[in-house]
Amino acid sequence: MNMDAGKTDKLIASAIAALPYSRPAAGFSARVMAGIAAGEARQPWQASVLKAAGLIVTAWAAALVFVAAGLVYSNLADMAALVIQPDGLARAFNLVAAHAALVLAKTVAVLALASDIMSAAAAGLPAWYEIAAAAAVCAAALAALSTSGRLASRRI
């Protein structure tokens, strides 16, 4: 005889409810606590690194703000004078552009000077083909000497 669905549901539910719990292998708790302790041990180290990185970033940002604030403060009067004049902003822009062009020109000049110094230093050296020829002659002489040395030792 077929049972009604509700009664079967109840039987299934009670069968599942009566299922026994399994116990993990011995030492499970110890392994979990060790895992927790390992995480705890790692955390202070990570925290120190993060704190140090945070301090460096903060100090660097503070230094930048301080320097920028000093520059702004020292040039505040000039900037204010420029701004309040007619076409002051345009003149300020022109001034900044002129400064940038000057810095660029100085950079180009420094690079050209460095290039000249290096060329002058290189001029004192022999030409590359002379160095290569000397190296080849030296290598040939060393090879000849070592070969004759080996032959002489065999004869002895």
């Binding site: 077929n2 009604d4 009664k7």
Partner: peptide, 10 residues
């Protein structure tokens, strides 16, 4: 729907 199973099976 699925009906209840036989009593002997349940």
């Amino acid at each position: 729907p699925v009906r209840g199973v036989a009593e002997s099976v349940a």
